[in-house]
């Protein structure tokens, strides 16, 4: 133990200066010093790969924009690779992030994909393919992906029911778009709605009370 004669306090730590006033300390005989905290490690790691990818992305996007500007032929084609990079940065970290609910990740990726498809369709001169069948295919894929996750991890399937429910609800959007005249493809609209509702029905038929309880918890007011 040490003593600070300025502050009139004893110091447990093995240090030369008083942590309160910075004055030199006096040794107190017969009482050893101890360190009650570990040496702190640097908690933030330097992620070289991530920094390199950010650097290359910004460099690539910038290069596309500059070439597009100097070789201007009436079309802003550089927006396609730039939005593609933005999309990858949006969904990439989601996909590789450890932890979290895998169905929630699937749901977020599907939503980002739907948004990107519409943007891409607009950048390519808008022919309506994203609304007609792009979104429908993405939503179908999302519902089926969550179905597979629920089958593979059936012991804890109720963890995914909520996200399945949200995607099922979204699976009805192509049908709404068709009946309101926004989308043209009846086939894709009905297939998506069919797949979505069939998945939900299967959950309620094959699932036990846990599925209903999950919804009860999620909707508590």
């Amino acid at each position: 133990m040490k003593r600070c004669n300025e502050c009139k306090v004893n110091i447990v730590d093995n240090t030369e200066l008083c942590p309160l006033c910075n004055a030199p300390l006096e040794e107190v005989e017969g009482q050893p010093c101890t360190s009650v905290y570990p040496v702190q490690l640097q908690s933030t790691r330097y992620n070289f790969v991530k920094r390199l990818l950010v650097y290359l992305s910004v460099l690539g996007a910038g290069a596309c924009a500059i070439v597009n500007y100097f070789q201007w032929q009436g079309k802003a084609w550089s927006l396609i690779p730039i939005t593609a990079l933005a999309f990858l940065w949006l969904v990439g970290p989601q996909a590789v992030r450890r932890g979290g609910n895998v169905a929630a990740k699937v749901m977020r990726i599907i939503f980002a994909t739907c948004a990107y498809l519409v943007i891409l369709d607009c950048l390519l001169g808008y022919r309506g393919w994203a609304i007609d069948y792009g979104i429908a295919i993405a939503l179908c894929a999302g519902v089926l992906a969550i179905d597979i996750i629920m089958i593979v991890r059936r012991e804890s399937f109720e963890k995914y029911v909520w996200y399945q429910g949200i995607l099922v609800l979204c699976g009805l959007i192509p049908l709404v778009l068709f009946f309101t005249g926004v989308a043209a493809s009846r086939l894709f609209a009905f297939i998506t709605a069919g797949v979505a509702l069939a998945s939900l029905l299967a959950t309620f038929v094959f699932g036990d009370r846990n599925a209903k309880n999950e919804f009860k918890r999620r909707f508590h007011v």
Binding site: K8, V9, N10, I11, V12, Y37
Partner: peptide, 17 residues
């Protein structure tokens, strides 16, 4: 701690450095 020490109260300090 100086207020306490001035009142004659014994204080022992431990810190994380």
């Amino acid at each position: 701690f100086r207020i306490l020490a001035k009142e004659g109260i014994s204080v022992t300090v431990e810190s994380n450095g």
